[in-house]
Amino acid sequence: MARQLRPVDLEFVESAPLRLVFSAHLTASPQALYAALADDVAGWPAWFTAVTAARPVDDGAGREIRLKGGTVFTETVLAREPDIRYAYRVDQTNAPGLRALLEEWRIAPTPTGSRVQWTFAADGPGPLRIVLRLGRPGLGRAFKDAMRNLDRRLDRSSG
């Protein structure tokens, strides 16, 4: 059953009780990277293997994301800054323990492509925060694999 989470704003990315930050370099341009993140929501399962289904809702103001294992997130997009930042908060989920969750993707140009930084900002009871911290290496691997897959996908589509 889906539970309502606490609504948070963009400042939560800095003030959350738990912040997990990951970064990667991609050869894709900031424009291509942003388009894949923000404009092609339905394409996420093709490169982020933890995502089994993704669709924009409310004319793109929100998203519905389904993960392997059955977790579902209903989200509100909070920031759409082309080629710079894409952020959303989770409004409802069936994941236990979460009180608030916001994810932010920051993009910066580099001489050879883009640098992307993903911040996973969460709040929940102490035991959940411990589990998430312990799960950081796995989440980091999932992020690195997703970015490698996305870079390959974008390279194929531009070539």
Results as ranks from 00 to 15, higher is better:
T110F: 10
T74K: 15
I84G: 02
R6W: 13
G140H: 07
I84E: 04
A61P: 03
R115N: 05
Q4C: 03
P125F: 14
N94S: 08
S23I: 08
Y34E: 07
L101V: 03
I84P: 01
E11I: 11
E14G: 01
L102D: 03
P127Q: 15
S114E: 11
D39Q: 11
S158K: 05
L18P: 01
L134I: 09
R55D: 12
I84K: 09
R133I: 14
E14H: 11
A61H: 13
G60K: 06
I130H: 14
A79E: 15
A121Y: 05
R153W: 14
M1Y: 07
R148H: 02
R63G: 14
R152K: 14
L67Y: 13
P30R: 02
T52L: 08
T119A: 00
E11H: 06
R156I: 15
F22V: 03
P125G: 03
P45M: 13
P17I: 08
T71I: 15
F12R: 01
R63H: 10
S157R: 12
Y34K: 02
F12Y: 02
F22P: 00
P17L: 05
W118R: 04
R6H: 10
M147P: 02
P17E: 09
G69R: 10
A79H: 02
V41P: 01
R99L: 13
A79D: 14
W44Q: 10
I107C: 06
R153L: 15
P125K: 09
R115D: 06
G62T: 05
V116F: 01
A121F: 08
W47N: 12
Y88K: 01
V13F: 01
E14W: 08
R133S: 15
Q31D: 02
L102K: 05
S114F: 07
L134H: 06
R153P: 04
P82W: 11
I65W: 09
A38D: 07
A53Q: 10
M147D: 04
T110Y: 07
Y88W: 11
D59K: 02
K144Q: 15
V13E: 13
G69C: 11
K144P: 09
T93D: 08
A95V: 09
E64L: 15
L67D: 01
P82Q: 07
Q31I: 06
V90D: 02
H25Q: 11
A50V: 13
T49R: 14
L18A: 04
V57G: 00
T52V: 14
G113P: 08
T110S: 07
W105I: 10
R3A: 09
A95Q: 08
V77S: 03
A146T: 09
G140M: 13
L128Q: 05
Q4W: 10
A146Q: 00
G159S: 12
F143R: 04
T27R: 01
Q4M: 14
T93H: 09
R3L: 14
